[in-house]
Structure formats: C-alpha cells, structure tokens
Amino acid sequence: MAKIPVQFTLNGAEKAEFIDGGTTLLNALRDKIGDTSPKGGCHQGTCGACSVIIDGELRLSCLTLAETCNGAAITTTSGLSQDGVLHPLQRAFLDAFATQCGFCTPGMIMAAKVLLDHTPDPSRDDVVEALSGNVCRCTGYEPIIQAVLTAARSNSQNAA
C-alpha cells in the first residue's frame, strides 16, 4: 500500500512521517511518533480519552485522519509542562486529587485547556459543559471540575 507523507508540529517540534492511508491521528501519534499521552478508550469518538488540540481546537484524535493534519499545530498533554514545571492545569489536577486510574486524565486536561484558552474565567457550568465529552469511569468528576476552576483562578491571579 502506498504510504502518505504527513508533516505537522507536535508540541512545537517538527514531525514528519509516512503513514498508511486511513491511519488515525491517534494511531499516528502513539505508534509512529511515540507520544502515548492520548489514549484509545473507544476508537469511536465517545470517551474523549484521545482528545488533542489541533490549531487551537479540541479534537478527537481517534476520529481524525492523520493525513488531514498536514501543516497543523498539534498539542498533547505530554507537551504541556515546560522545563519540568507543570502547567497550572496539571498542577491543579495533582493538588485536587483529580486523577484516579489516570486513563482519562490527558484528555480531560486537553478539554480543560481549550476551555481556559477561550474562556479564562469560566463558570462551573462552563467547566461541566467543556468536560461533557470526556468520560471518567472512576466517576471522579467533582475533583476534576474543582481542579479546572482552581487552575482558572490561578491563571487570572498570575495575569493580574
């Protein structure tokens, strides 16, 4: 099968791969590029564990074909901390006990980041709505919601 070249930036770094037609971005990131922070929970766009940010928008990488991402800027949870310092969302998830099994966590953080990028001072309802596409089967939603609200407050304090 003819391979398709694909080129994009991942967490700021240039990446280029040859992939099979039909390869999802999730599989390209995990199996080809080696970024396993997006998780495959359902491969049908229902659990949100594979969430990544493409050109500023929240996307399900299991339903996105890698070949459609040429030239895109892709962000994943593995790229959020800088020089060993956790991103405020990562810090807030840690402090708020917002992880249990951890499988949904990278996707949750992606969804929360897109929310805060667009809405720096969200209401609780905004947070609930923003996380509504992400399933936490451990059902630890309340600490997750609190973590996002805490991160938003710490961001606005830093900005002030």
Binding site: T77, R91, T99, G102, P106
Partner: peptide, 22 residues
C-alpha cells in the same frame, strides 16, 4: 491528605499503560 504517588505520571501523560508499549 497525602499526594498520590501515581498522579504526576497521570497529569503529564507519562504513566505507562500496557498499550503504551510498541
């Protein structure tokens, strides 16, 4: 309250689940 030992791996996407091996 004591921090969970596995949380730093979870929030950075570094925790190695079985399927993260290739």
């Amino acid at each position: 309250p004591r921090p969970r030992s596995d949380s730093p791996g979870h929030v950075t996407g570094k925790t190695a689940y079985f399927a993260d091996r290739n």
